[in-house]
Design a protein around this nucleic acid. Structure first.
Length: 290
DNA sequence: GATCGGCCCTGCCCGC
DNA sequence: TGCGGGCAGGGCCGAT
């Protein structure tokens, strides 16, 4: 379940192992993996041959490799179960291999493996991001993430308090702040002692800033530990899992004691998925917004 | 325009 | 043992 820290770990791996290597062969093996590439999987493969990734970039959970000339980029989203692995040429293909890039230097190939096929690849033009940088066209509407040095805290506080929704929905809205998914939303809310259904317009600016700080802290800590791993689905480019799962306070801890007060953590239905909270530290607001 | 719910997809796990 | 149902969940799309 890759969120910002996990995607950043993968980005660093790509920067180290893929950038600067010319692509000599590209195979897209599953149509769904290229569904966002409108001309189709064969076109995607053809257009990658002969190109060289010159950087590895990220915004929120989107990853992209700007190609030589910097007019286009190979965009990737890992979805829930996507992996980008650098593997020696000739080793057995994983069951859910969706795409493969080989390089002129004959070194390790880049594999896109995705069990649940929520992720995907696309070749997209790079557009001006309005701040001197460039982003793939379909990423332009995504907000900067909380760890981005150019993230505007004051604008985020204003935009969030203009919303009329629950705080967790707002945290998951990638047009407000990107990179926060179910895991880190629950952890940031637990640290802030805030219920997931707290109405955004009722949260004092100082508490919004506090929540933002907690989101940053929990993601930075996860990044330092190589990301969160629940099953074998999230791994870095070398196939290694992170260790942050051991540090979670609320997410996935149903029935276990709250690390702060000892009350059993509760799991609740939230937007077709789950939310975890301490019923004592994170009290239900007077007018909850689902 | 803002908000919200449903759906996509596959494998694992649990209960019967 | 085998089968069916529930669950995981980010992002997109349509409904309200």
């Amino acid at each position: 379940m890759p969120e910002l820290p996990e995607v950043e770990v993968v980005r660093r791996g790509l920067a180290q192992h893929v950038v600067g290597r010319a692509i000599c062969d590209a195979q897209v093996l599953h149509a769904r993996a290229a569904r966002r590439h409108i001309p189709g999987p064969d076109d995607l493969g053809r257009r990658l041959v002969g190109r060289t990734p010159v950087a590895a970039s990220r915004r929120g959970k989107y990853l992209w490799l700007p190609l030589d000339g910097r007019d286009h980029a190979l965009l990737a989203h890992l979805g829930m179960s996507g992996q980008l692995l650098v593997s020696p040429v000739g080793t057995a293909d994983p069951i859910h291999l969706r795409a493969r890039l080989r390089f002129t230097d004959g070194g390790g190939e880049l594999r896109f493996v995705d069990q649940r096929t929520f992720g995907g690849l696309a070749l997209e033009p790079l557009v001006d991001d309005g701040a001197g940088g460039a982003v793939p066209a379909s990423v332009a509407h995504i907000a900067r993430d909380a760890l981005d040095p150019d993230f505007d805290d004051a604008a985020f506080v204003r935009a969030l308090r203009r919303r009329h929704t629950g705080i967790k929905r707002a945290l998951l809205d990638q047009s407000l702040v990107s990179g926060i998914g179910n895991i880190y939303a629950d952890e940031a809310l637990w640290r802030s002692r805030m219920h997931w259904a707290t109405p955004t317009e009722e949260i004092a600016p100082v508490r919004v800033r506090g929540l933002l700080g907690h989101a940053r802290d929990v993601m930075a800590e996860a990044l330092a530990q190589g990301g969160t791993s629940f099953d074998a689905l999230y791994v870095d480019v070398n196939g290694e899992s992170g260790y942050f799962e051991r540090s979670l306070s609320a997410y996935g801890q149903e029935g276990l004691p709250c690390p702060r007060c000892g009350t059993p953590i509760r799991r609740e239905a939230f937007a077709n998925r789950s939310s975890y909270r301490c019923p004592r530290c994170q009290r239900t607001p007077r007018r909850p917004r689902p």
